[in-house]
Structures are given as structure tokens and as C-alpha cells.
Design a protein around this nucleic acid. Structure first.
Lengths: 249, 249
DNA sequence: CGCACTCTTGACCGAGATCAACATTCGTGG
DNA sequence: CCACGAATGTTGATCTCGGTCAAGAGTGCG
């Protein structure tokens, strides 16, 4: 629970911003001076709940987080996954009340930053404002693809699509090599993300394994045939808006 | 196709921004001075296509627009509806390539604004930047609810939810009275928004009519029993982030 | 060692897709 | 103003994807 500013080279915020624009000396310094309260949280814990009104937002310094909603019939829908370097609840900066909840999937290291501090830096550095805004727009874009995935593809294809997204995004932050990565998801998480039942998620995964497209055991995913998986999943990474034009892994 | 700045009282941009914050004299003037190219477009026309790289964005001065994606199997998924006063493709300000297409549903009056002009105003007026950013965040929030709707509710409830959203949003911009409004959607549009087949959309609508929850003929919707419709649709307007705390019409 | 979580399998059922007609409305030009 | 063709809306029959229920098998953790 240390409240220290973290070292420059490993600051995920800095890395994220610099992947979009090249920062001036001042801008870099301003970000490094941000008061970040680090906190380690175990797996499967709530971070903020739907309906709360946070006065700070958080960056994922390490780990995997999910955003979710719960319907009146107590069904959970996972809306988004967030990886190391993401700032998932930036929206709380402008919207009083959170419309989604956030929880950890793996054990995480989070960095909490007061809204006040973010507003302060935005007021002084319009390009940083732009980069953060952009960040929220990318999340929105991913959400739109998610709607399409859930609304218009059937379960097998849908699962393939989601796995492709994972690999590309993890690769982009250096957490996937050779089409394989750690994926701290249970099949129930996957089901809630895909909008299918747990039983069916299980069967779909088996089908993907049987077709020798993937390997997925004890939280470790390996894509065996990237081309066929992307085709099955109707996957085009454009919506991720990654600088690396075509993240072909 | 006049390129004039429109009158103050009826400027939808101004109305939209002032619904979120109170503008200073300067800010007002800056917005009124924005060079807007007005254009009338017929119903069911493309505005911008997925994959394009626009150098301007547009505001809806009048009419209804939808955002959509098309899957590899040529199925259309409608991602969002946008109403008078909205600026649907603000994202193009920060993301090179559009990940969605926009098309009109009704005949529309659009106002095109060069990115350059928006950037200029944002650089000078951080509060306007904030309001525009907020705007995009609200669209993202609506998108998240949409994921939940498509992923976790069954068709009847899903349709009820969508109709509730329409009424509340139209009411918020003064285009719905007494739970009734013009809705320039075909059943096919509805189906593509709900992620169901056209045939099923038709049946679901009939069910809603049979239960005397709504009336929906020749593009005109009347909600007959708001309470039961919201309950069936599991609808809570929080995600719309409207200033009017609980838009109970 | 035992309990809890996760994964797997089978049987059955139901929401919604698909296909194929047909009805209705609307817009357009003659 | 009418007539025609193209969108739209409606209906029924059939099929299938995915849900639900229920039981059991691993697996891991205290």
C-alpha cells in the first residue's frame, strides 16, 4: 500500500501514453510526479462496484481486471477485460456514477490516482488529455466489437474471436509470445463474457481444442493455428486501434 | 448545403453542452462561431463508412442516425442509435480509422464540422473538451448496457429495454410526450439492433402489443404501460447519465 | 484428509433461426 | 389518380443452437 511514484522505465502509464504520442520532457515529468497509491489485490476481488461514485481512478500496474454488469435476474455480463497498463475507469472522471463494476481476475497490482490529480495534469497538458480521451475511445471501440460478437456470431465463432482479441492485446503489451499467453479466466468468466451458459462455454472450448485450434489448460492459452482461428472468429484487429498497424502477433 | 452558423437558441450543440455545464460568454461565442456545414440527407443513406478516415465530424441537427458494423457473413449489427443533438463520430477526432459506419434512419439535417475547428476550440476551452469527452463516455456507457442487453436478456425483455431507452432519450431532448414518440425504425432495424432475426423481432413486437404494453405502427411508438414495460425490460436509466436524475417519463 | 471450486458429460427442452409463402403499405411514374 | 413494383410486415412449419438440470470427476487448498 505504498504511496510512492514508481520508477520511470517501468511506469505502465508512461508506456501506454508513449505508445500513442511522444511526450515532451515536461509531460513526462508531470506523469512521473503523479501521486499514485499502489495496492496489491488478490484474485477475484471487487475493485469498485456499479453505482459507486469514486473520487479516484485506477491504473492496472499488473494483472487482469474485468468490467461487468449484473442484470435484474442476477446474471452477470462481462463487458470488458483490461490488461496491464490500462486505466479502466477513466470514465469516472466525467460521469458521476459508475455504470459498471470492476473486479480482479488474477492477483493484481493497482495504482490509484485521485481525480483531482488527473484533472490537474489535464488542465496543464492538453496532449495528455487527448491521449486519455483516446484511451477511453479505444475501450468504447472494443465494446462495440463486443456487441457485434455477442449479437451476431454464434458461440464457436464468438469464442474464437474473443481469444484472438486476447492474444493480440496481450501481445501488444509484451505478455504473449508465439501466440500463447497466460489467461487467468475460468470457463465461467468466459461464459459470462460470451453471453452463453457455462456448460456451453465448456463445449465450445472443447470443440476448439478438438479442431486443434487452441490449447487452454490451467489458465494458459496457446493458439495452435492462428490463421484458422482468426477466420473462424471473423477477427480483424482494426477495432483495437493499435499503432502497430496489423498486430499479426 | 449552406455553410452558415445557425441561430443561437436552436443550436443543438449549444443545447447539448449546456445540459451538462453552464457556459461562459466566451465559450458560448466560440461554439456559435464554429463553422458548420449544414446538409440535408434522405432516409437510409450512408453518412460515413466503416474503415474511412474522416477529417470532419458531424452533429445531428435533426433526425435519427444509427451506427452499425457488418460481420464477415454480411450480418448487420446496429451498435447505437443517435438522436437530435448527438455527435456520434466524435471518436474520429482521436482514432484514425472508423470502426463503425453511420447511416441515417429518418431524413436528417446534419452539421459537419472540420476536426481542425473542433481541435482549435478544445485547445482553448478545456471545459468544452471535457463536455465532449463526457459525451463520448455516455455513448460508451450506452454501448455497455447494450452488450448486457444482447448478451443476457431474452428477446422479449431485450426489445422492451430498447424501447424504454428510446422513450427516455427522446424525452430528454423534447421529442417524446406522454410516453409516445416517432420512431423511424423498420422491424428489420429493430432486429439488427436486438441481435435477432427479422421474423423473431416481428413476433416479439406482436407479443408486446398483445400484452398491451406498447403500440407501434407506422413509425410511431406509444408506451401503454410504462411500469410494466420497464419491469419486463429490466430497465434502469442510470446508464444514460442524464442530468435529470430519474427521467421517469 | 476433506471440502470447495472448477471442469466435464448426458438427457432433455425451449428460444429463436431459417425457409417459404403471403399480405400490406408505400413510393413512383404513367 | 391509378397501377405497378419494391419495401415492409405477417404467418406457419420445421430445425438447431444453446439453455437447463443433474450428476460426477478432477483439482486444489486449508
Amino acid at each position: 500500500m505504498a504511496s510512492v511514484s514508481i520508477s520511470a522505465e517501468r511506469n505502465p502509464l508512461l508506456l501506454k501514453l508513449e505508445s500513442v504520442l511522444s511526450l515532451s520532457e515536461e509531460e513526462r515529468d508531470a506523469i512521473l510526479a503523479l501521486p499514485i497509491r499502489e495496492q496489491d489485490i488478490g484474485p477475484r476481488q471487487d475493485i469498485v462496484r456499479e453505482g459507486e461514485r469514486p473520487t479516484r481512478c485506477f491504473a492496472i500496474l499488473d494483472g487482469v481486471v474485468c468490467a461487468f454488469k449484473t442484470t435484474g435476474e442476477a446474471k452477470r455480463q462481462i463487458i470488458a477485460f483490461h490488461l496491464t497498463g490500462d486505466m479502466p475507469d477513466l470514465e469516472s472522471l466525467h460521469l458521476r456514477e459508475l455504470d459498471i463494476g470492476f473486479g480482479t481476475l488474477s492477483a493484481c497490482k493497482l495504482g490509484f490516482i485521485e481525480h483531482e490529480a488527473v484533472r490537474h495534469i489535464c488542465a496543464r497538458h492538453p496532449r495528455i488529455t487527448g491521449a486519455l480521451w483516446r484511451e477511453t475511445l479505444v475501450y468504447a471501440s472494443i465494446g462495440r466489437e463486443w456487441i457485434t460478437n455477442v449479437g451476431r456470431r454464434q458461440a464457436l465463432s464468438r469464442a474464437a474471436h474473443l481469444l484472438c482479441e486476447f492474444v493480440v492485446r496481450l501481445h501488444a503489451v509484451g505478455l504473449a509470445q508465439d501466440h500463447s499467453c497466460e489467461l487467468p479466466l475460468t470457463q465461467e468468466d468466459l461464459a459470462d463474457a460470451l453471453g452463453v451458459s457455462m456448460v456451453h462455454a465448456n463445449r465450445v472450448l472443447q470443440a476448439l481444442r478438438k479442431q486443434e485450434l487452441i490449447n487452454f489448460e490451467n489458465r494458459s492459452l496457446t493458439v495452435l493455428d492462428w490463421d484458422r482461428l482468426t477466420e473462424l472468429g471473423d477477427f480483424d484487429p482494426g477495432y483495437l486501434h493499435l499503432r502497430s498497424a496489423r498486430a499479426e502477433t
